[in-house]
Structure formats: C-alpha cells, structure tokens
C-alpha cells in the first residue's frame, strides 16, 4: 500500500485544563494527492485536528503520521504548507505580497546572503499559478480577502510542500469569490499534485473543492464523497445555527449514498443521539479559534 499523506489512528486530544476532549478516537487516512474537506460545527475539533496534523499542538494520544514522519518533522521539512485564516496576518505591516511569499522561503537564509534568483523566480511562478502576479507588489494590507488567500496559498507552497492545509479559507469571501477560489484550488491541485486538506464549516466550499469529506464533531462521523452531501443533508445542516448543527450532526448518520437515518442510540422522539458532539462552550478552541470571522472584506 502506498504511503498515506496523512494517517491518524485512534487520535484523541484534550486541551490542558479543559473538562471535555476536543477530539475523540479519530481514525483517518488521507491518500497522497487527495483533496479532503474537513467539515463540522464550530468547536467540533476541526482546527484542533489541523493543528495536530501540523504539529502545532502536541500531547495527543494515538498515532499521527504525515508523509511517514511525525507532524513536527514533516512541517519543519517543509512538506506541509499552512494557510491560516487571513485575520491572523498583521495587515498594517509594510510588506508586499511578493515579500510575504519570499519570507517563507528565505527566513532560514544566512543573514549575509542575498535571496537566490531561483527562489525569487519560483515564488513568482507560484504567484502566477494562483493568479496573484498582478498585485504581487501591492502591500498585503491593501489586498481583498480573495487576493490575500491567493497570496497565502502561494506562500504555503513556496517551500515545496506536498500537503496544503487550509483553515477556513472562505470565511469573509462572497459566493462569487468562493467559486473562483474553488477553481483556483483545482488549478493548484492539477498543476502541483499536492494533497489538499480544507477545514471549514462551509458546506458549499467543501463540496466544490474536495474529493472526500470528513464530517467531524469531536468524533469522525462520516468520511465520504461530496456527492453524499445531498440537498436534504445540506438543507438540514444549513437550517441550523451552531447549536442546531450539533443536533444535526449528532442525530443523523450520513452515508456515502446520501441517505439519512436516525442514530440507533437516539431516545424515542429525540432528534439526536444523546452524545454531546457539539461545541464545548468552556473550551479554549471555541473561545479563540473557530469563532474568528476574519476581516470581512469583500473579494474583488
């Protein structure tokens, strides 16, 4: 069997001081070159899972490997490129889009060395691939949400990453921008053959740019093709707010063919299996991670 891009076996994680685990018994295999959407409600553990895969969080039980290495080793080897929610960047920084991409490739360079021409050309090629060449010299603070995402993708790939990890990439981007973003990701996937992990709570975004979808609400509830996200399932999920999503994901088991069936463990007359799969309101991730909404600037 070929080596998986990402392999998780029985992974559980609890934040220090938290009463409830953020992730429970998650087993997931992502093949090289696959596009996986990780979907779930706020507080469902999506960003926690991504940070464990990136090696930014440690102390999980179970086994996590990335390209056959520990997550930290894979990250430091440049095998996994990370695109955070864009609200993390200091938008007032006097840095152009090109400089932001180059910084990722050159921060280890000895201080007395100039940036090699090959590295600068590679950064320009990537900026061209993601359609960012036209605004590469603009300061990043002046870019729209969609433009910023393109630059961040180029930055994530500039060290030769085999895996592209995106955290809520479509937050604050309008519907047209989301469609453009899906096309952009398809181009990147076709040209570079990278594995793409997209963490989102946006069903449309994940359906448009994934080969498979992992539905996560602390536990992995299903792992299927986006075609399994039928209009009924989408309608059910979109008709709920965060608290409703908890019930929807907890009470409906989604199968690859798209059928819904009540959870066998659900008490009679209750839509939900009784397990608390939803957000833990005292949880650090819920407070600091998934609730961020980004800058809210319109895509141009």
């Amino acid at each position: 069997m070929a080596e998986a891009a990402v392999n998780l076996e029985q992974v559980s994680f609890t934040y220090p001081g938290a009463a409830a685990p953020a992730l429970e018994q998650v087993t997931l295999r992502v093949e090289a070159g696959e596009r996986l959407g990780i979907l779930g409600p706020n507080g469902g553990g999506k960003s926690t899972l991504l940070k464990l895969i990136l090696g930014l969080l440690e102390g999980a039980s179970g086994v996590i490997t990335v390209c056959g290495m520990t997550p930290r080793a894979a990250r430091l080897a440049g095998l996994i490129g990370y695109v955070p929610q864009r609200s993390e960047a200091e938008l007032g920084a006097p840095v152009s889009a090109r400089e932001a991409v180059l910084l990722a490739a050159t921060w280890r360079l000895a201080p007395w060395k100039r940036v090699p021409r090959g590295v600068a050309e590679h950064a320009d090629r990537l900026l061209g691939l993601v359609g960012a060449r036209a605004f590469a010299d603009k300061p990043i603070g002046s870019l729209s949400g969609g433009q910023m995402q393109r630059v961040l993708i180029a930055r994530a790939l500039v060290c030769g990453a085999k895996i592209l990890a995106l955290d809520e990439p479509t937050v604050g981007i309008d519907a047209a921008g989301q469609r453009t973003f899906a096309v952009l990701l398809a181009n990147v996937h076709r040209e570079l053959k990278v594995t793409i992990l997209t963490v989102t709570h946006d069903l449309r975004a994940v359906a448009a740019s994934s080969d498979r979808v992992a539905c996560l609400a602390k536990r992995l509830h299903s792992h299927m093709s986006p075609q399994g996200l039928t209009p009924q399932v989408l309608a059910e999920l979109f008709s709920h707010d965060v608290a409703g999503l908890r019930g929807a994901l907890g009470g409906v088991h989604i199968h690859a063919h798209g059928a819904q069936e009540p959870c066998p463990e659900a008490p009679h007359g209750v839509h939900g299996c009784g397990h608390d799969h939803g957000p833990d309101h005292g949880h650090p991730e819920h407070k600091h991670g998934d609730t961020k909404t980004g800058g809210g600037r319109a895509d141009s």
């Binding site: 993390e88 990722a104 050159t106 921060w107």
Partner: peptide, 22 residues
C-alpha cells in the same frame, strides 16, 4: 539585521511563521 528575516516573518503573521518553523 541578523534576525531580520525570521523577525519580519514572525511580526507579519505569528501563527503562520510558527507553522513554518520560525
């Protein structure tokens, strides 16, 4: 001057810089 590159990367985006190993 010695730390200008990692320092600029970190100042620009702490979380991403950390993900890149800064």
């Amino acid at each position: 001057w010695w730390w200008r590159r990692p320092l600029t990367f970190w100042a620009l985006d702490e979380e991403s810089a950390r993900a890149f190993g800064v």
